[in-house]
Amino acid sequence: METQKIIVLISGGGTNLQAIIDKLHNQSLNDKQTKVVAVISNKPDVYGLARAVEAGINTAVVASKGAESREAYDTLLSAEIEKHQPDLIILAGFMRILSADFVNKYLGKMINIHPSLLPKYQGINTHQRAIDANDDVHGASVHFVTPELDSGPIVLQAKVPVFEDDSSEDLRERVLTQEHLIYPLVAQWFLSGRLTMQGSQAVLDGKVLPENGYAAD
């Protein structure tokens, strides 16, 4: 049986990594086996690495602390990735801005999840920014990675309500619940051949997705 190989890049606790492991590691999908072949962290001793070890998945640390430059780091990261020849690279809380050369090398086969309804609130502190803006709806977006930060074609978004007494942590937990549902789903679409990136657009089942992607129910 052909194996569809996944690499997950992390920087922390790895709750989205766990969702990917639970739904896609050693699973059968359209007569193919999906397998997380490696989890790579830019930080040592994060809990996400322990999650991978528990699941019997290879781990590696390509430490970003002390790297000479972004490009130098990305060269080391790419060398580690190339050991496994992945079909899909999943960024799961990987807190690095990647160089254009690195992103272009894996263009169309690397996805990210961002805790906002893109294009709103690119970057960090998204939950507090939504609260400060008095938004009544917030959420998460899964998108293909392009050289522009948090700007690649959006595949799927999930919305959550924002309540008056919400803290940023309350909102974060509500969004995370949705992230754990939609991220493995998008990965399944890609690995089953249903989802591709064509030019600057995400295409699902032969149809170009709208600018804000597919809206999860």
Rank of each mutant, 00 (worst) to 15 (best):
V142C: 00
S167D: 14
Q188R: 14
K109S: 12
T196P: 00
N26E: 15
I10E: 07
E71R: 08
I89E: 12
G213R: 01
Q33I: 12
K159M: 10
V36Q: 12
R194M: 02
P115Q: 06
A52K: 03
H25C: 12
V186F: 07
D135Y: 11
I90R: 04
T15G: 01
L176W: 01
V137T: 07
V186C: 12
Q198L: 12
T59Y: 11
G14T: 02
T15R: 04
E169M: 13
L77A: 11
G206V: 03
A72D: 14
A130R: 03
I40W: 01
A133W: 04
L149G: 10
D101C: 02
L118V: 04
N30F: 09
G123T: 03
R174M: 03
D31A: 09
A63V: 11
G193R: 11
K83P: 02
I97A: 11
L176V: 08
D22Q: 14
L118T: 06
V162C: 08
S167Y: 11
G48Y: 02
V61C: 10
T146M: 13
F190N: 10
D217F: 05
G152M: 03
L176H: 09
E54G: 08
S192I: 08
S151D: 15
L149F: 08
A19T: 06
G108V: 08
T126E: 06
Y214N: 06
E169P: 00
V103P: 06
I90L: 13
D101P: 08
A50G: 01
G48H: 05
A158C: 10
T146N: 05
E68C: 06
H127K: 02
D31V: 00
E80Q: 15
P161N: 06
T34M: 05
N212R: 15
N104I: 09
V203Q: 00
Q122A: 14
I113F: 05
L24H: 09
Y121L: 04
D165I: 04
L24P: 08
D217T: 04
S200D: 15
S168G: 05
L91A: 12
S141K: 03
L76A: 15
M197R: 13
Q128G: 14
N16C: 10
D135K: 05
A92Q: 13
N16D: 10
N134M: 09
V8N: 04
Q18T: 08
A92R: 08
P184T: 10
D150Y: 07
Y183D: 13
F144G: 04
